[in-house]
């Protein structure tokens, strides 16, 4: 018999990974499918950007894993250990943070000022469409945040990585705020467009449910006293939530078609391409929000690390 801790672990996983690792594999596959689906149907980012990202990933993988496998896997392993260790993460994120803040400020300011003041008015909606420069980045960030929580949750459950639990705790509040911003800005846009602040539009409804899911994770985290236990519980709920989010979106779309509600898109009639002069500031503000997201997540994660490790020597040295 090996180490009993490992034995418990393996028993726990064997216990649930019933025929071999069937359940684990199906879970991962499912998650991958979810991610692909979301990326494919991500409402705003042009597919070319995702394809471009895919190419970059492919090239890195080709030269890395196939040409220089040794270096590649060693680097990955080092990152895994360094980012998985709260102490290294704290140091590393401290180095990144100033740069991320600078990039976020520049991108957000340029994107918003360009979009709100200089981009041309929409041919149908006039100036009211300009709220997309807030609404779309917020919606996208809320959705991505939940996906990221699901991935972090899976990592936390499978590899018991403390950092993954900390990430979930760091992501949840900002994600919930982004979902709320998306809802409020959607409502403000709805007033001139639909004549009412609220309509049970498929996208708004999905976003509302996403907000509920965020609040559930936050509520569960706050209800459990032991932070380690709270982290694991939130991980499980995030994974279940991510699987659910896909079915929710599918079901809400179907529900909308059933009741033939309004399906007006923010870009006018669905399918019509957005003009490049409007797209550029949108992309800027979107990446700006992503960087802002990264900044808040890092700051919150760093606070959480300090709190969890407050008794350790390195935190004492860091703080004093």
């Amino acid at each position: 018999m090996q180490d009993s801790r490992a034995e418990h672990r393996s028993q726990a996983s064997v216990n649930m990974a019933l025929p071999g690792h069937f359940y684990l594999i199906s879970l991962v596959t499912l998650l991958a499918a979810v991610l692909t689906w979301f990326i494919w149907s991500a409402p705003v980012l042009p597919r070319s950007i995702w394809l471009g990202g895919g190419w970059v990933f492919g090239v890195v993988f080709y030269f890395g894993a196939l040409r220089y496998p040794d270096l590649y896997w060693r680097t990955l392993e080092r990152w895994y250990h360094e980012l998985g260790s709260p102490r290294y993460f704290y140091r590393l994120s401290g180095l990144w943070l100033p740069w991320l803040v600078a990039i976020a400020v520049v991108l957000c300011l340029t994107g918003l000022v360009w979009g709100l003041a200089f981009a041309p008015p929409h041919h149908e909606q006039g100036n009211s469409y300009r709220i997309i420069y807030l609404h779309v980045p917020a919606s996208s960030a809320a959705l991505m945040g939940y996906m990221a929580m699901g991935v972090a949750g899976l990592v936390a459950l499978v590899w018991r990585l403390k950092m993954a639990e900390i990430m979930i705790k760091a992501i949840a509040p900002f994600g919930a705020v982004m979902a709320a911003v998306s809802l409020i800005s959607g409502a403000i846009w709805g007033r001139p467009t639909w004549g009412t602040y609220w309509i049970w539009d498929a996208r708004l409804t999905s976003m509302l449910i996403l907000l509920f899911l965020y609040l559930g994770v936050i509520a569960l985290q706050n209800a459990i006293r032991d932070p380690r236990q709270a982290g694991r519980a939130a991980s499980l709920l995030s994974v279940v939530g991510v699987i659910n989010v896909v079915i929710v979106r599918y079901s809400v779309d179907w529900w909308q078609s059933l009741h033939q509600g309004s399906s007006m898109s923010m870009f006018g009639t669905a399918g019509s391409a957005i003009h490049p002069s409007m797209l550029a500031p949108l992309l800027l503000s979107m990446f700006g929000i992503y960087f802002l997201y990264a900044v808040t997540v890092l700051v919150r994660a760093r606070t959480e690390i300090l709190w969890r490790e407050r008794k350790s020597q390195w935190v004492r040295e860091e703080v004093s």
């Binding site: 509920f212 559930g216 939530g241 659910n244 079915i247 929710v248 599918y250 809400v252």
Partner: peptide, 10 residues
């Protein structure tokens, strides 16, 4: 209820 009701929607 808070955790489960959103999951019940589909």
């Amino acid at each position: 209820a808070l955790l489960v009701l959103p999951l019940y929607i589909p």
